[in-house]
Design a protein around this nucleic acid. Sequence first.
RNA 1: GGGCCCAUAGCUCAGUGGUAGAGUGCCUCCUUUGCAAGGAGGAUGCCCUGGGUUCGAAUCCCAGUGGGUCCA
Length: 929
Amino acid sequence: MSDLEEEYRLEYFEEHGFHRKQCPECGDHFWTLDPEQETCGEPPCDEYSFIDDAGFEAEFELGEMREAFLSFFEERDHERIEPYPVAANRWRDDVLLTQASIYDFQPLVTSGTTPPPANPLTISQPCIRMQDIDNVGVTGRHTMAFEMMAHHAFNAREDIDDPGQYAYEGEVYWKEETVAYCMELFEELGADPAEVTLIEDPWVGGGNAGPAFEVIYKGAELATLVFMQFEADPDGEYEMKDGNRYSPMDTYIVDTGYGLERWTWVSQGTPTVYEAVYPEMIDFLTDNAGIDHTSEEEAIVHKAAKLAGRMDIDEAKDVEAARDDIAAEIGVETDRLRELVEPLESIYAIADHSRTLAYMLGDGIVPSNIGTGYLARMVLRRTKRLVDDVGVDAPMDELVDMQAERLGYSNRDTIRDVVRTEVERYRETLERGRRRVEQLAEEYEDSDDPIPGAELVELYDSHGIQPDMVAEIAAERGVDVDVPEDFYSAVAERHEATDAGADSEEATSHGERLVDLPETERLYYDDQERMEFEAVVLEVFEREDGDYDVVLDQTMFYPEGGGQPPDHGTLSTEDVTADVTDVQITDGVIVHTCDADPGTGDFVRGKVNAIRRRRLMQHHTATHIVVHSARQVLGEHVRQAGAQKGTDSARIDVRHYERVSREEVKEIERIANDIVTDNGQVTQEWPDRHEAEAEYGFDLYQGGIPEGERIRIVQVDEDVQACGGTHVSRTGDVGAIKLLSTERIQDGVVRLTFAAGEAAIGATQRTEDALYEAAEVLDVDPEDVPETAERFFEEWKARGKEIEELQQELAETRASGANEGDEVDLDGTRAVIQRVDGGMDELRATANAIAEDGAVAVVGSATGGAQFVVAAPEGSGVDAGAVVGELAERVGGGGGGPPDFAQGGGPDADALDGALESAPDVLRQIKSA
RNA sequence: GGGCCCAUAGCUCAGUGGUAGAGUGCCUCCUUUGCAAGGAGGAUGCCCUGGGUUCGAAUCCCAGUGGGUCCA
């Protein structure tokens, strides 16, 4: 096994007189210029020493610090790169949020597949780390949202077989330069290099690893310098702290992270990072919440803040014990300290969370029950609770807007709208929850039992009601709540029990043999209107189902991809004409599934089914137009969440926070058809990916992230997207666009189904057919259908009521007047046995009427099989349920009910009369039993 | 992407295979002319939709639609 120690012995340290030491407290190794230094300099081994004693020559505001950093590296030949969105799932599918600047370049750039936008580069990347959520506000240094300032250099080894296989070659710079830059930056800002400590701290993450330094200055961790150079390998020579083995890779990357907020904080020396980063917002919130400390209280808070670094829930085992220690050290009661500090902690958290929300919503994340949307919802609800608890009396949308304005977002109106909608939604959830809990509390009010844990789990998991909220509401009614210790693991367990993951394996029958074939030349991009071509058959595979998979040197057939179904058509030689039923692409090789074998090595003439292709192209272009129109109507946040094109209709799923109204649908349809009428050119080009990203942003990648240096982008009207599909050449060729339906397929995702061209006409005609048919049935003009339908529906209901009343009357008449029913005497109790051929309602009414007269009623009917109703007045001594059971058995069925009123029946209608005849005997038997 | 919960009167919700309910609101009358007043009477329902099981489904099963919620 090889140790990393050698990796940290830099010439830079040697030349500048650094010493390597080991911290007696935590055991970490570190480098320092100060021969006297003993501990590593980082809390809890050391304390902050920059509070009230700012660490740099000048104080910086956030923006000034960012600029200072970026221009420092710009002056040193780094290119400044614009930040990426915080929603990392826009360009990668393994994570939801951007948590570090290196995320911007994973996985394609780090693996060497795609070149970096610049090399070396510098950036200040907004990041969100949800895992720090419990520390925010408490420790004084943790924020959920932050900017990671960084410089990166992407290097590739030259001593390998084929250095040209990667998108970059050679070494830009490595460890020596990285450490030198770091120290130089400190000196430029006026820090004493002797106060800087570099702790050896190997880094592991996402299957990669490497040596790294944590850079500590005056107690604060200000930078991490990571030298990514290993990849996971069971036979690797390095074992890292995660217990896995790693071996060197061909690319090696400088990955640094300088926390903008920490640097700003140290430059100002305020008690907490929050006061340095968004002082106006903290002032606003403290004022608003009416927090006004005396100077003595102020002093306590101030002292506590200096020590608050110990309250890291990840490191301090018991946060409350840490609070006790702090209280003891500054000489106040723990309770008093908590009373003073907790509201401030909430306010810090509110400011941070508002900023987090501004980033998320500003980048177009829509609150939802899935993905990043769910995270946004969680943050928003948590913030709302904090706001209410601490008594801030400002609407949430205003708080988020304060941060959005500061961050320079232009879609602030949408952000506010989203926040308002979401807050309202939360209010409704809480109200629903309150009613539910009150009801539950009522159930337990009379018993002395507390509300059990299982109920709490159910309330939380299915209804989103926190246990402490249940406790609060239950307490109002004097009901206890039994919160299990392991509440959240009980919730998790509930999920695990039902999670049965079934992995579907993708079976590519002859995938391996495809690898040796050259990439198929794609003619469909050259001229999307052309449908015929000639090609050479490179290989034919016979399929298990008897069809053939044919690979050509070039093709006009579009393979399934980007939600566009494959082309159909024919491949013909002199002798054979094969129908193409499917076309797929694997690693650049296009496979045509045919019903005949054209023969390897032969020339074939390919002919694409032009009608099908044209319809697919119309729908594909229409999809771009509809998304673009929806964006204008619903807002800038609208983004594609999936799409499927077809020949008769297409659907597009779009992120949006509300249901789409009928008015909005009409507006989208109108704008879409305006674009069609304008008949603008639909263009495609293959620009450099980084240039395209710089020009159009990541909204390019609505349909997925393509690989490679150059990407294909398609422009329709003002809409630009990376797209591999085929399109008509002018918007007018789409013909017409008709929105067919909208549905909300998930919270925050709306599906728009529409038809284009001929299909649009067809769809409209179908709708009209339905209307005309309905009109014909009602015998009115089509435009009168709604009114007539309503009238008919009302009348139908009125008739129903009338029938019921008449049945009632009829039944009463029957019961009272002379009728054909047989009267039997059962030891003084009268019984009436009667056949009434009618529905169940009629039978019931008749039986009731007879029973009201004081007689036992046995009523039978032969409509729809045999049916009985038996009613027994109180004190008759007859169990109606038993009677029905007995009678129903005779008609091959069953029945039952309470003793005073029962019903039943069976399929054998012919046996009805026989059963009724035996009724007197049955009654006597039951009565005497 | 997965799990769970819900859908019944205008509203909030009970309902256990056997005659669809309560509170509130609504209408009428009475009492009182007093602030969420009291009394009496009355009207309100495709029990979300479509299948299935059953003699019989608001109730059980399946699918769909709409809503809620938790997790990754």
